[in-house]
Amino acid sequence: MPALHHVRRGSGEPLVLVHGIGSQWRIWEPVMDRLAQERDVIAIDLPGFGRSPHDGTGPSVPDQAERVRAFFGELGLERPHVAGNSMGGGIALELARMGAVASATAVSPVGFWTPRERTFAQTSLQVSRRLLPLLGPVLPSLLRSPVGRTALLGQLVARPWRMDGEAAIEHLELLVGAPAFDACCEAFDDYTFHDAHQLDDVPVTVAWGDRDLLLLYRQAARARHVMPRARHVTLPGCGHAPFSDDPALLAGVLLESSAPVADVTAL
């Protein structure tokens, strides 16, 4: 099986970062250097996204989690910390269910939706993916403009003007070209988070931007109800993909949730 493309920085406790559907490792770039000051940070491209080839991994969230667990073994990682956004958040929670991680942080995770909310998210992503190619050669110039980024990325990012223009171009190009996108998006039909008690032995943090317009912020209350033993954090002023909205806030949440036991005791 081909290796997953990944980028590794820093030293310390290993922390694996998992992106959402249609994204890639670079979405974590605004927080990676801060994390790398205290963690051995490993940001991956899931199979069929970014630079990782489609390797036959199934499209469901549990299937993707199994592939990430196999990746841990390929790198010799024994129960690293993991953080994921959106689909990656669901993957992080499934890895916690497997007992494969020391802690799990899920940022706006899939799985806490109603059927109508799930269909809204799927349709929004699918329509965007189909319409973006119609913009053709004007897309890069639009994304280099704060106004253009706001128009095109406002559903995902609360403060699109803070996002790097070249990073935005790459993000949307990879969204359009990701070979695993359609199957993973359709597989959401069968995924709802369940059996929270199976995660009781793993420290879990759920963080949600209060300006999330894709997996609407009201789903955070549902997550609190379903996972009462988890730590729940609101990210004020942040959207669904909060990386450039408030990098310092997000990095702080990730560092606290992935702190070794001795560090937590000292807090």
Results as ranks from 00 to 15, higher is better:
224 R>G: 01
194 H>A: 15
238 C>Y: 15
64 Q>V: 15
46 L>M: 13
70 A>D: 05
218 R>H: 08
82 V>M: 14
56 G>A: 04
200 D>R: 12
112 F>Y: 09
63 D>T: 03
213 L>R: 15
253 V>M: 09
146 P>T: 08
122 Q>M: 12
172 L>I: 07
225 H>R: 15
83 A>H: 06
16 V>Q: 00
140 P>V: 04
75 L>W: 06
165 G>Y: 15
141 S>K: 07
12 G>Y: 07
256 E>F: 01
95 L>D: 02
11 S>W: 05
205 T>A: 00
104 A>S: 15
206 V>C: 00
260 P>A: 00
52 S>D: 09
219 Q>S: 01
43 A>P: 12
170 E>P: 01
236 P>W: 05
43 A>F: 15
173 E>D: 07
143 L>D: 12
193 F>E: 15
8 R>Q: 09
84 G>K: 09
159 R>I: 06
218 R>T: 06
138 V>A: 03
264 V>I: 14
103 S>N: 04
22 G>R: 02
52 S>H: 11
213 L>T: 13
88 G>E: 11
251 A>N: 07
1 M>A: 12
31 V>P: 03
213 L>G: 04
185 C>E: 13
247 P>Y: 06
19 H>Q: 01
125 L>M: 14
169 I>N: 06
259 A>C: 12
200 D>V: 07
29 E>K: 10
40 D>C: 13
